[in-house]
């Protein structure tokens, strides 16, 4: 597996990027979006804080369902979109890991609240 293969490429890992100037970001770029210097990947620990959260409600032929979507500010200073339990509160301490949907085999980041 290459250095840049993350969950979107089917690898079960979360990746961020950072530069020598200390900037860090999440969505993959060829260079640092702030200073333009070289980018290198890193694996964040996964701990962070819920910054924003929504619960999407779907009503279809298959009945009603809901999923939680959140933006998590990871402790390394990058913001990651992840699924979460519906109704997870802003400010909650969480840990993000890569999980797999049982039906579709799709990998995605999922965050769970760290018990206080």
């Amino acid at each position: 597996m290459s250095e840049l293969d993350d969950w979107t490429h089917g690898q079960r890992r979360l990746l961020g990027q950072r530069c020598d100037e200390g900037h860090a970001w999440y969505l993959p770029r060829p260079r640092c979006p702030r200073c333009g210097s070289a980018a290198s990947p890193f694996e964040p620990i996964g701990t962070g804080t819920i910054f924003a959260q929504t619960t999407i409600h779907r009503r279809g032929d298959g009945g009603a369902s809901s999923i939680g979507i959140t933006l998590v500010d990871l402790d390394e200073g990058i913001r990651v979109m992840a699924q979460c339990a519906p109704g997870t509160s802003i400010g909650s301490r969480v840990v993000v890991s890569i999980v797999q949907d049982a039906d579709t085999a799709q990998l995605f980041p999922y965050c769970e609240v760290i018990p206080a």
Binding site: T8, A52, Q53, T54, I56, I67, I69, T70, L71, M81, A82, Q83, I90, Q106, F108, P109
Partner: peptide, 15 residues
């Protein structure tokens, strides 16, 4: 890929 859509993006802002 997470199942997000336009209302969800704006709902994140709203939350």
């Amino acid at each position: 890929a997470l199942g997000a859509n336009i209302p969800a993006y704006y709902a994140l802002l709203a939350s």
